[in-house]
Design a protein around this nucleic acid. Structure first.
Lengths: 225, 225
DNA sequence: GCAAAAGTGTTGAACATACACCCATGT
DNA sequence: ACATGGGTGTATGTTCAACACTTTTGC
């Protein structure tokens, strides 16, 4: 490969994360508001261009840290976006990731050098337009997230340490976009052995007390759905 | 993003394909022998650096065509390899794909500008060393291929138009690395509706005549294994 | 006492697994 | 007649899907 061939020059790599969390039974994604051109003052997924002296995933984590203050620990490769004109500045190939965190375990920085806002958006109520091709990337990640929760332990990092069975079920229903029978859902979750009864209960106003469950250390060996 | 910041310069993208086929019950992968530095005269997966004026998948197909003469039509994103030093020439991020073809439907060009040989290697008998990090990429693709044949119609493009049930079973057994009961395998394939009896038979020497099957147009809606 | 949400068990259908015998061919 | 590989059916256990009633609580 001839390095100075103009065909190979001016290319870069974006690492982009769709960072999801669950909040009161809603699935939310983290967006930042851009402070710089291009797409100044528009909402965007978290991410940016990786440096030529850092591994790809190191660059991803650096970008997330710089733009949100969050240490991203759990993420999965989602897709690659390689259209020539997806960035107006120069030719960038985007590697997209799905990140999952419990929003109560992190503190979100709302203003940084490159952002002037950051917030969690329900995946049903997203801003009309996002920067770059981030709408396409996010839609794709939401679809892949649905597959992931059937195939992996991803919810373990998405949910708080303790949760009730109806809460867990609601997360599945929101992400999978379908209703599930309460009794069958319980049975399946418990027989899979991925979660277990903590023996504790939670009592909220206006409600009957509910049992609290937690994830076990068991690794997933078959699909949930 | 400041285009001329040295942090963002001298980066490129490799599109790399692990192209699989099935030949006499063996799963084989297509390798080329490199004609140029780096890694001159070593076997490598098919692929190369994409140009800054072509979409990623266009570049993938161009590279495959240039180095093997093959028009790659069926492929799937497999993974991304983003270590800083994976190429000795300059910083390259590799996007890896799984390609599938019926080798009888293509003609392989053994010598090109950039290759001096090309051949199909059984995935059990690969060359000791491959160029770049292609061993890592290929191993990863072989694992993902096993997942894909359980989840998608990928075999439709991997196999000839007509095939016998024992042939099909052998492909599954080779890729999944386990033995399957003949009678249950038949039942499952037919009840899934993905393949059907053509009514034709094939007669080979030394053998009883065997029924020929073909794929239907049905889209896969549940996992095979 | 009634509405709202949590908790529990049973039953039938569908599917997966295990397994044994016959047929055609070539030696 | 026997060895090889192709073709078929049945019986059993497991898993999935459908479904109804009771409890607690606040109003």
């Amino acid at each position: 490969m001839e390095v100075n061939n103009p065909l190979y020059r001016r290319q870069g790599i974006h690492a982009i994360a769709s960072i999801f969390t669950v909040d009161k039974g809603e699935v939310k994604v983290l967006l930042i508001k851009r402070n710089n051109e291009p797409y100044k003052d528009m909402w965007a997924l978290v991410g940016g261009a990786i440096h030529n002296d850092e591994d790809l995933e190191v660059g991803l984590k650096r970008e997330v840290k710089e733009k949100t203050g969050i240490n991203l620990e759990h993420y999965f490769l989602a897709n690659v976006f390689g259209k020539v004109n997806r960035s107006p500045v120069m030719r960038m190939v985007a590697i997209s990731y799905i990140g999952v965190i419990d929003r109560d375990k992190v503190s979100l920085v709302k203003e940084t050098l490159k952002t002037n806002d950051a917030d969690w958006f329900s995946i049903d109520k997203l801003p009309r337009k996002l920067a770059y091709d981030h709408e396409e990337i996010l839609k794709d990640s939401i679809i892949k997230l649905a597959k992931l929760i059937g195939e992996t332990n991803i919810l373990k990092t998405l949910l708080p340490d303790c949760f009730t069975m109806p809460e867990l079920q609601k997360v599945y229903e929101v992400i999978l976009k379908k209703e599930i029978d309460r009794r069958n859902f319980r049975k399946r979750m418990l027989t899979l052995g991925l979660i277990e009864d903590t023996g504790k209960m939670r009592k909220e106003d206006n409600k009957k007390a509910t049992k609290l469950y937690c994830f076990t250390d068991k690794v997933m060996d078959k699909n949930v759905f």
